[in-house]
Design a protein around this nucleic acid. Structure first.
Lengths: 272, 272
DNA sequence: CAAATAGTGTCTCTAAGACAATATCAC
DNA sequence: GTGATATTGTCTTAGAGACACTATTTG
């Protein structure tokens, strides 16, 4: 039998297939506005969630996402979904894994390809599109409770969600979690969020990763703030600048109007 | 409508779904045997391929892999497939991404979840199982040809394959490739292999990753050899030992019988 | 003893961290 | 001028790389 003959007789529908979705954990680093017009907001990190407008988990908060469509790559699908549900087009999306345990979706055999993005909180419209009726930023933290357990806290105004995860292993430098308490989030999204956050922390010291989330031109302070928000630390500007100078080129442009000395804009140094 | 009512009326078959496969790039670091009985083999890295026993790409060399089955996670599926096709059970499998571009499989809409493993070349049986009729180690290298092109060379005895990839981007520290010439490999496996190899190079300096590929007890030389094989460099034993000592604990056991001073066995230091 | 790998000691140099000081803007 | 961030300089110290040396095994 030739390959052509084989393909003529091959029917892909003869085999059981899963459905495939994408979910996007979009983290924002802009921080809350401050009392003083010229003081920067505190370093903080937040996560974009949408309230589900239809079953299952109707009314629950969830990551923006949806089903992969024929002819799309998973990356294209992730960009489409976050745009549809939040109106925002992220600069880039980092894949963080496939979630495929059975029972993760009550509708049946459904895998999720998860992505992470870092975005400014501006540009995301308050209310979502078709299958999500609201999009909101939640202040986000993942705290080590000891004994292998971690608490995932998400809060936005009067809404407060808290999930608990158990760390089952650390493989290839990545924590593997199991949901102890989903905290009211849809599907296994507590697991995806915890995984996303811990991966982001693990790679945030890598400038190659951070640059892909930033605009083309940026100030060194903004870069520093992104790193500080993700890692939850405070860095000395002098040391930070010295560490990063190998990776950036300065431009002639400045960013002013902030009530203090204007900051020079930098671009990522061309790859060696 | 309640969620129960929704789920009763929901038919997952109403929507188009892809088929989902797993593919495993298993790299071996043992190197060829040497002329002298007591000299170590040269540092080299090889890749396990199987010759496809059925259509499509019948007779072509391919990564071990196959279709995801209901009730399996993609990780479980990857372990099952490599065991079925090569008889080998790797210590662990690192996920490296989902390949989902349309046209990557002539049978239709089929995604592949790819994994990497590092194994000793012992323990892999020469001939494969059901849907693969032969498994072989190929010497493997990925060379920068300049102009954004890379050559992927695979050779095993009289068989020699050479594929060409074009680097289209570097995102999150990972090279993105496009196949310029598949080199006779099945499907888009040239792309998967190049991606796997370049990711492995990127993370090989991270001991957390290397330990997950090694046996529980190992000599520092073997750890050094793994790193040298992947990175394609030669390291000073003194410096290597100093660098790694924070991450390992020594045991009372030794590995001897090699015609020279026996080496102490080490274990990975317990996580802080 | 010879050959090979296992393992140690020491020097240099780079780069990260601490911390102090100066520069420049909007108001 | 005031208050804020932007930017630079210097001292100290941890760690990576180079390299010479010693230790221990099998044949």
């Amino acid at each position: 039998m030739t390959e052509e003959e084989f393909l003529r007789g091959y029917n892909i529908g003869d085999y059981e297939r899963p459905s495939v979705t994408v979910d996007v954990a979009a983290f924002g680093v802009s921080g809350e506005k401050c009392e003083s017009y010229r003081k920067d907001g505190n370093k903080s990190i937040s996560l974009l969630l949408v309230r589900r407008g239809c079953h299952p988990f109707k009314g629950c908060w969830a990551l923006p996402g949806g089903f992969l469509r024929p002819g799309e790559t998973v990356e294209e699908s992730a960009f489409r979904e976050i745009k549809e549900e939040t109106g925002f087009v992220p600069r880039s999306l980092m894949p963080i894994g496939v979630f495929s345990s059975s029972g993760r979706d009550p509708r049946g055999w459904i895998l999720s390809n998860a992505f992470v993005s870092i975005v400014g909180e501006e540009g995301v419209r308050a209310s979502g599109g078709d299958d999500a009726d609201e999009a909101r930023w939640f202040r986000c933290s993942l705290d080590d409770e000891g004994g292998g357990f971690f608490g995932l806290s998400l809060s936005s105004g009067d809404i407060s969600l808290r999930a608990r995860l158990e760390r089952t292993a650390v493989l290839f430098g990545r924590s593997q979690f199991r949901i102890a308490d989903g905290g009211g989030l849809a599907f296994d999204h507590a697991l995806i969020i915890a995984t996303a956050f811990s991966i982001l922390r693990g790679v945030a010291e890598n400038f190659d990763v951070l640059f892909d989330f930033l605009p083309e031109k940026f100030t060194l302070s903004s870069l520093q703030k992104v790193q500080e928000s993700i890692l939850g630390v405070s860095l000395q500007p002098a040391n930070f600048r010295r560490k990063v100078e190998r990776f950036v080129d300065e431009t002639d442009e400045f960013q002013g109007g902030a009530g203090h000395r204007p900051a020079k804009l930098f671009v990522r140094k061309a790859r060696r």
